[in-house]
Write a protein that binds this DNA or RNA. Structure first.
Lengths: 209, 209, 209, 209
DNA sequence: GCATAAACGAGACGGTACGTCAGGTCTTTAA
DNA sequence: TTAAAGACCTGACGTACCGTCTCGTTTATGC
């Protein structure tokens, strides 16, 4: 999706000519953030505007990403930080993971990028795939890993499909952060409540009896 | 956002001048469906193209909706059918609701509209609000209603926030239908599995003990 | 070019149905004059605007004239007043004719119509012809008549083509009123100067000797 | 009104960015001529059509001229060739000047442009001014110059306003070429007849006696 | 050290779609 | 039947961006 020149710096070929300017790249990222922070909606965010705001030629952007969406996905995947999954118990890790997603959904800086990429990703199949490959899949993978560990350690039921359990855990927080209002994320105890409710089940006395 | 002509059909004023053509409206809807069915991606779906496919002037579209997104949201909300919430037990109703959403997510005809509106809705706040008001809110409302009934009848725990319970039930299926792949919806027993897992809880012997 | 209904009011047929509103016609004329007086340039003068300003439906205009230009030509030809050709000497009549054209060129009310029609008349051949037939031809005809009389009475040379003499007399004042600035028409003695200069000839001593 | 690129070719500033394509400019001019030659009337001559015929984007036209009229005025002023005022006697020069205007009025290639610009120039004051400044004023200036020379050399009367004399000479041919029919220009001896008639005067025996 | 080669800013290029406006026609209800 | 109102289809308007392509300049390397 993006060019390999930056990551593949250890390439054997000598790459003659003037190297790509790192400063330009940073200026582009900064311009996008600044524009979005300044109330620019996503369709209003044009390559032309980014180039102008960054003091950069349009070709300098197109040399790095084939289109606006690729640039955004690239920005998103760069913002992904490793899950802080280092806690002891599986329940604690689940809470940590959901809390992490809650905070990301709340964070002003990353929220628009998240929503943007999610929103626009349906436009083209390849972008959709790229986003799922680089952002969603790792998260689901981490969730599944956690679920597997929980099953092994007996903290989670073993008679259920791992993927299903993973989605039951991750789905609600994703829906709240992406599809609905931001106000639904403000409760600091949300992660704990969610995990506990899910672990214990929603059934009342009638169902439990 | 949308025209009042359909809802305000009981208006007292005589509405002078030539009335809006119902045929044109249907032609527009049909053209959108046809184009999307024909592999047109969402940004490729232009007002100009819709007008041409419908054999209609652009102004006839702009007279009804201010932009493409409003047209899509309108289409979505017209496709909304009342939930078949007529079953006996609360668990049965929950299954029915989730099954309904699963089928809607699978249905070729409505899926792209759903995704489209969801995807593009982040572009402008007013559209976002409109979509939430006319599509999401009713669904959440229905879910909450069901949850309340479940609590009253003892089928659901009474010590939890109703909204939270509603989201725990609705979130996973929404995430699967909107954010992820369509292949995750193919299991016909999915709704039953989800509801039962949620009601009984995900906790294993360690947590339960 | 225009409809005959107004002039042919003595038509034998009973003309069933609601008769055409004379008030509407006057309102249209008034609206055009008002708009033009209000600084509306000619391409800005739209049928739609006229109808709105006159409080009249567009169809009411189209029922009378096929297009904007026809309406203007009709207005021009209605404004044409008979030449005051009642004076004694031919020289006096020539001066009167040119003075009449000078005043028409200066008159705020008729100037824009004159220029408008002249300007737009090149757009379509039939309009061009209509304008020439109803406005230009009568003037040239009157001028030629005058020239013929002048030749008969010995006040004008008889060895020249009548049309040429007519144009030599009428051309300069027409050019000044239509093609050039309005400031060139302000001299009240212009008509006398022109006619006398033309009658006596522009040649100086060298040519005359 | 027009771009400076052609006239200000000696500009000191480096003119950054890709330079404007001379080929595109020529293609535009050619397209206009071709369209007009092909029977397109002036209001039918759209920017859209010109761009299509020239194989050029609309923006390429709008980058150079603010509207259709400016483009036409520019074309007219580029077609202006220097008057062939090199003859010996003042009378000869006058004949040459009027003959030149007669031929321009007859010339198929320039006639429509002339009429077009003259016709449309009344639409907007700035265009009117531009046309007068770049086309009409030079012609009148040349005529006045000639008149002054004629007065000095005694070939023209010295007791008349120079401007008036100029208009008496130029007005008739202008009226014939612009306002009236083309058939009035066909006589090859027209210029000589006009000048001689004007120099000798139109007055007959009665006036002369 | 000096050519080579690529990236740089700027901005013009051919296009496409935008949302608006007006043209001229047609279909309502009211007079 | 005409009037007003206003919706209809058509098509041009002038603008904004798209993604590509020159320009002249700058900046690294490699001969």
């Amino acid at each position: 999706m993006t060019t390999d020149t930056t990551t593949a710096s250890d390439c054997a070929a000598p790459r003659r000519g003037r190297p790509r300017s790192e400063a330009a790249e940073q200026a582009i990222f900064a311009a996008v953030e600044e524009l979005m922070a300044g109330g620019t909606s996503l369709p209003e965010l044009t390559i032309e505007g980014i180039a102008a705001a960054a003091g950069v030629g349009k070709a300098t952007i197109y040399r790095r990403w084939p289109n606006k969406e690729a640039l955004l996905v690239d920005m998103v995947s760069r913002m992904e930080e490793p899950l802080p999954s280092t806690t002891g118990s599986v329940r604690g890790d689940l809470v940590a993971m959901i809390e992490y997603m809650r905070l990301r959904g709340l964070a002003k800086r990353s929220r628009w990028v998240l929503k943007a990429a999610l929103g626009q990703m349906h436009s083209s199949p390849e972008l959709h795939a790229a986003y799922r490959e680089r952002v969603i899949k790792p998260r689901r993978q981490a969730a599944r890993e956690l679920v597997r560990r929980g099953i092994e350690e007996g903290e989670l039921r073993s008679d259920l499909d791992e993927d299903l359990v993973g989605d039951l855990l991750v789905g609600p927080i994703l829906a709240r952060s992406v599809l609905w209002d931001d106000s639904d994320l403000e409760d600091p105890a949300l992660a704990v409540k969610m995990v506990d409710a899910l672990l214990q089940g929603l059934g009342g006395p009638a169902a439990r009896g």
